[in-house]
Design a binder for these strands. Structure first.
Length: 550
RNA sequence: GCGCCAGUAGCUCAGCAGGAUAGAGCAGCAGCCUUCUAAGCUGCGGGUCAGGGGUUCGAAUCCCUUCUGGCGUGCCA
């Protein structure tokens, strides 16, 4: 918000001086504090179009802005930067605005209520959620929360792949385990089947409620029954894990239901009408290579069954039909070969493929004692999302997953992560919040806490540390806008760590509650209370608790 | 082979929407609790931003190229 104010003042000044400003220039917070609180490159950017040198231009601007009381000092430095040191009163004014906004601080209409559909996790319902899904859950949900905060109309959806091959295999695996329970010799458990312990648990559960009745059904009925049982159990399990992670979906869309509604036939007919399908080797193909894919793709296999692609495409079309104008899919890294065919289909059917945006979360590599752990759902070797929550807790897990940008591979050393306690940055941030809470408690006990904070106290906030904190607080609205545009929730953690560091330093350096100087104490309490509120806002966006004590 | 992603401090990673002297946490070393929580603070050491070229006032950031690693390249999902 401060950047915009300075930017606007620069524009106003340029116009008053009759300086052309076609090219975009920026106002930034410099890395080096010696370069002021804010800095603009406008003189360097605009020098060429005004046929003058950056220094001359900067000098003019400086002269014109000199009278402005918001700027304590204006300097020209380096190749033509204009550096601003802001006056405390300016920071104080901004701070008061932040304070007045309370919980709604950083809310905006930036997203203009655009309907955005975020699809994530969408794991096969054939086992417990693993840590890759956990990463997707944390990422997607945090992005959702930020987008909502800045005025988009986002929704979260989970697509359930409850039809097709994998589910058949699941049902077969369950049947084998059930036979095993009854003492049948099933021989070696098939390689393709699901080896996880949870399948045994499912068998036990089914056995205890239904016993041999299952085997009295016809083969077809039995498989259907097992399928349904396993799916509903596993889906419930996944839903529970996500809930423990504070991730709630607005919609769960079932592939099976979509198929039953006839969308498969619909999509096939659309594609046929668009004249981009053909028959070959007894299969029906989509000529996706005409639209930029490497090769053509099968829609209907030679055995008459449908590939994964068709209902998934149908699902994407329903998103559009429901009025979403931006579709964000958050995928694992092993799906990037899949994207060109979806884009191709969008083109073939005449939809704007720009509406479809795919974010790839890179893989999570598990290490144990320095060695890579290869995870496989089939082989039953997985570290589940629940394991993770049990061991490190929801807060640390969520923090850990959003702390890295999507495109970065995530190396996760189990032993290190499980040991992580006070070494984890999440505690550093939460501790800063808890410390403020503790100070406030003390102030109330010492009867220093006022009924309401008077605006006159603002003038006492003039220490460098205090102004830096205000500056950081003022940064949040812009940060959230950037996060929402670039889909980069990881920047929340950087922000939190920086703000927390400022709080800890301030705490270490100054005594906040001091009965001997009540007004100064109150001014500082006012600052910290507001900072605490802003921290709570950010924690909420991250889905992490803001503890009052630790 | 082709495609996608990555390569920044001993480790895990920010910075990539060109800006000034490249940052944080952890690990290492040295200090700070008879004042509000030491899960904290202060200081020190640590870098050929994978290599090479280019673009310009300016490149970790943009372009080209080489190398290295991961993933993908099914009538699986």
């Amino acid at each position: 918000m401060i950047k915009e104010i300075i930017h606007a003042q620069l524009i106003e000044c340029l116009e008053a001086l009759g300086i052309s400003h076609e090219k975009e220039f920026s106002v930034e917070i410099p890395n080096n504090t010696e370069h002021g609180d804010y800095s603009s490159n406008c003189a360097m950017i605009l020098a060429k179009e005004n046929k003058t040198s950056p220094k001359v231009l900067a000098d003019k601007i400086k002269g014109a802005l000199k009278k402005n009381k918001d700027f304590k000092k204006i300097e020209i430095a380096g190749p033509g930067f204009i550096n601003f040191v802001l006056s405390p009163s300016f920071f104080q004014r901004i701070f008061w605005e932040i304070r007045q906004a309370e919980d709604s601080y950083a809310d905006s209409e930036f997203g203009a209520n655009e309907k955005v559909l975020l699809e994530f996790v969408s794991a096969n319902p054939t086992g417990p959620l693993n840590i890759v899904s956990a990463r997707a859950a944390a990422f997607g949900d945090t992005l959702y929360r930020v987008m909502k905060k800045v005025g988009f109309a986002p929704a979260r959806e989970f697509y359930i792949n409850d039809a097709g091959n994998q589910v058949d295999i699941l049902a077969e695996s369950l049947e084998l385990r059930l036979r095993e329970l009854h003492g049948d010799n099933i021989g070696e458990f098939p390689y393709e089947a699901y080896h996880g312990e949870y399948v045994k648990h499912l068998a036990q559960k089914l056995n205890s409620t239904e016993g041999v009745r299952v085997f009295m059904m016809t083969e077809k009925d039995r498989i259907d029954h097992l399928k349904e049982f396993a799916l509903s159990e596993l889906l419930e399990m996944q839903r529970n894990s996500l809930e423990r992670f504070d991730v709630v979906f607005d919609g769960w869309v079932s592939e099976k239901t979509l198929r039953a509604e006839g969308v498969v036939e619909e999509v096939l007919s659309y594609l046929t009408e668009a004249d981009c399908t053909f028959e070959k080797d007894d299969a029906i193909w989509f000529a996706s290579s005409k639209y930029g894919d490497d090769k053509d793709r099968v829609l209907m296999k030679s055995d008459g069954s449908i590939t994964y692609f068709v209902p998934d495409l149908a699902y994407h079309l329903t998103k559009l039909q429901r009025g979403f104008t931006t579709l964000i899919d958050i995928f694992g890294p092993d799906h990037h070969g899949y994207v060109p065919r979806i884009r191709a289909a969008f083109q073939a059917l005449g939809y704007d493929e720009k509406m479809l945006e795919i974010i790839f979360l890179q893989q999570v590599n598990l290490f144990e004692s320095g060695e890579r752990v290869k995870m496989s759902k089939r082989a039953g070797k997985i570290v589940t999302m629940d394991d993770l929550i049990d061991e490190v807790g929801k807060d640390a897990a969520r923090y850990f997953f959003i702390a890295r940008k999507a495109s970065a591979h995530l190396n996760f050393d189990l032993e290190l992560a499980l040991k992580q306690n006070n070494e984890n940055p999440v505690y550093y941030c939460q501790y800063a919040h808890a410390r403020i809470a503790s100070i406030i408690k003390k102030a109330k006990k010492e009867k220093i806490w006022p009924k309401s904070f008077k605006k006159e106290l603002l003038a006492k906030l003039n220490k460098a540390e205090e102004l830096t904190i205000i500056q950081k607080l003022a940064d949040l609205p812009e940060l959230l806008r950037l996060i929402s545009i670039h889909r980069e929730p990881h920047r929340l953690t950087t922000y939190m760590e920086e703000l927390s560091a400022m709080i800890h330093k301030y705490y270490a350096r100054y005594q906040i509650v001091n009965p001997k100087s009540k007004e100064l104490s109150q001014a500082r309490l006012m600052l910290l209370e507001t900072a605490k509120g802003v921290m709570a806002i950010v924690f909420e966006l991250m889905g992490i608790s803001a503890p009052e004590k630790m």
